[in-house]
Design a protein around this nucleic acid. Sequence first.
DNA 1: GCAAAAGTGTTGATCCTACACCCATGC
DNA 2: GCATGGGTGTAGGATCAACACTTTTGC
Lengths: 229, 229
Amino acid sequence: MARIDYKHHDKILLAVDCIIFGFDGSGLKALLVKRGLEPEMGKWSLMGGFANKEEGIDQAAARILVQLTGMDKIYMEQLHCFGDVDRDPGGRVVSIAYFALIKIEESNGETLDLHNAKWFDLKKLPTMIFDHKQMVRLAKERLQQKVANHPIGFELLPNKFTLQQLQGLYEAVYETSFDKRNFTRKILSLGILQRLDEKEKESSKKGAFYYVFDKKKYKQLESEGIKMI
Amino acid sequence: MARIDYKHHDKILLAVDCIIFGFDGSGLKALLVKRGLEPEMGKWSLMGGFANKEEGIDQAAARILVQLTGMDKIYMEQLHCFGDVDRDPGGRVVSIAYFALIKIEESNGETLDLHNAKWFDLKKLPTMIFDHKQMVRLAKERLQQKVANHPIGFELLPNKFTLQQLQGLYEAVYETSFDKRNFTRKILSLGILQRLDEKEKESSKKGAFYYVFDKKKYKQLESEGIKMI
DNA sequence: GCAAAAGTGTTGATCCTACACCCATGC
DNA sequence: GCATGGGTGTAGGATCAACACTTTTGC
């Protein structure tokens, strides 16, 4: 077999696009920005950017997430690589999509405004550029699969949350509703929630206990994939 | 926000690497080739190649699979994009890994020989270049997840197969063993197998019925994901 | 007739689902 | 004292796991 050199092959623009999910108590949201460059400037778009030669693609995604949200260490995972020849009318660009889960209340309003970012309910998404709608759809499917077996839903909630908030989140992710008693029993039986002595008193007279996700206990149990739901 | 042009961004070499699985009745196998270019020429490697500007990445993967196996229309799905800066000592190359399932007996021996390809038992893999071992590990995990909910195991078996072969395949994928009665009952209760009148008489006096996967029935049932196992 | 693999049912345990009432509190 | 959301238990059905013997046939 012939000896071949890397030099004779095509180099291609590599982009990273981020599907950023948030939950505000009423529904799953995606964070979109107004695109700041041609083509399609001014249209709604996922937050994205180009990968540089000197950085890994995960670093590129993390960099872009910090740019927009001002937040470090947010949950992020690679989704899929989109590489149709004509996906971007501006040129041949292969895009690696990442999805991220953030706690809405911790994001930085200033950096969001800087990029003209806005939260959209997943069920009321605007028209988006290129194949970004397909990216969001795929990300939502992946989120559903993942949430069923991994404790990542907590990334979308405040550090302390009530069972009702947690149930609301699962209902939003799966677009369905669960029986309160069954849900409570199942989620508590996993043994990964720790109840605080503190109560949330905003939304009821009686008050609902706050819980926190107990990462240590989860790590102990994690024989690759606990059934969350 | 400033108007930016694509031209000012880095272009990067894009490779495609294929994890090709096969099943020969005794264990899950992966198809490796002797690498034909520097660096690491002569070492064991996944079959790969560079993506061209004029083709989509899925097309690139399909092209590379045909090159090696001589087979068209084989089951293939994107796995993950590997983009660490130093993953390839020969230069900055981002690789998109695909995994494929083939029926070993249908592959073309000549094209395999041409690339010095060899089947390796997944439990006895040789040293491989770059991050290819990691790719195989991830592919195996994904295969396990996918096989549990989708009827793709049949891609690894001849068109007609016995229940014993099918069970052997599932046992190989999950590296465990199942109870014959429970397995038979569950798989037949799905209603996606059709029994032929023909028997396989090689491996027993009595003979075992051949079955075929009934794609039509599956499509009817497919309300997104039937539980296979 | 015997060796070798094929084929087939039952039972107990577990898990899942459906369902409704009392509790604590602020007003 | 009443309105509001918080918290809790049970029973029936479905599913899963464990288990062993009979059948067929080529030799």
